[in-house]
């Protein structure tokens, strides 16, 4: 059955309207980031600037500290991703493949951690890290990522369960131990799930605001999200911040995330299917 064009028009009208609401703000972020300082203070605001100043993207590195913030973000994000991937693939392998007393209980406990909201543990965790002298360091942001997380481990386990056990058997006959099986069989065959864990960790850590806000007071050590926020706070009352530079900073925060989703889509689909439902 093919509906006639007359019936489709309302569908397109609604979708175009929705798309406009989704995309126009983004286009405005891009155009403001390329605008001159004069443009952003004109009233009433114009839809598009007259000239594009690509130099703004140079200025955020020369006139502001965003370059340093970006560097700090990378320093925090990379070990977090590695830690999450390794720890959750270890635990996922153990829960999916190795028989041991207590395995069921640990699996149930893993699922139970998903129900604990982050703020339920935030005060004692802060006190502990303060006691360890970790305030104003990256450790409170990185170290919790080195143990894995309930969601990543659940995802890894579900994915590894789909890998045929015959591979393990064959590898065992070739003389590989458990670690060898993990490294030679499980890791290469669970790349989509590993990539999914890496992407989720990146997403969380790249945008993380509360963690740095609590643990990092030294502006030298701000990651990008907190540093960008701090930039909007430093201007005096009544003085408008440089919106063009802030929007350029917003782009700096946004573009890597969009790229990660764009290139990771394939993995997210395969990795997510292991959960029995499709995501992205």
């Amino acid at each position: 059955m093919r509906p006639r064009w007359g019936q489709r028009i309302p569908v397109y009208v609604v979708l175009l309207f929705g798309t406009a609401l989704m995309v126009l703000p983004l286009l405005w972020m891009v155009s403001t980031s390329l605008a001159s300082t004069k443009y952003v203070t004109t009233f009433p605001p114009k839809l598009f600037p007259d000239t594009f100043e690509f130099a703004n993207y140079g200025r955020i590195f020369s006139d502001t500290d965003l370059g340093r913030y970006l560097f700090n973000s990378v320093v925090i994000v990379i070990p977090s991703m590695v830690g999450q991937v390794v720890a959750s693939s270890f635990a996922g392998y153990a829960l999916a493949r190795l028989r041991a007393p207590g395995r069921r209980i640990w699996f149930v406990v893993t699922l139970a951690t998903l129900m604990i909201p982050y703020e339920a543990t935030i005060v004692p965790t802060f006190v502990t890290f303060q006691y360890l002298g970790w305030i104003n360091t990256f450790w409170p942001l990185i170290v919790p990522q080195l143990f894995g997380s309930g969601y990543s481990i659940f995802l890894m386990r579900q994915f590894i369960m789909q890998i045929p056990t015959e591979y393990d058997e064959a590898a065992r006959l070739d003389g590989l131990g458990y670690f060898g099986i993990w490294r030679r069989i499980i890791v290469p065959l669970s790349v989509p799930a590993l990539a999914t864990v890496a992407i989720f960790t990146f997403t969380f850590q790249w945008g993380n605001f509360l963690g740095p806000l609590i643990y990092i007071n030294d502006p030298e050590k701000y990651p990008l999200a907190l540093g960008l926020y701090a930039m909007t706070q430093t201007s005096n009352v009544g003085q408008t911040p440089d919106w063009n530079l802030i929007m350029a900073g917003g782009m700096l925060l946004t573009v890597p995330m969009v790229m990660v989703y764009f290139f990771g889509q394939r993995f997210l689909y395969e990795g997510g299917n292991a959960l029995g439902r499709i995501r992205v």
């Binding site: 959750s88 153990a94 893993t110």
Partner: peptide, 28 residues
Amino acid sequence: RETVAFYLFMLPWIVGILALYAVPLVAS
């Protein structure tokens, strides 16, 4: 041996469960 391997692979996560969830929750 399989049991030992299980707990070695689980070690980081078990430490994490205790240090980041169980103990802080009770402490809260």
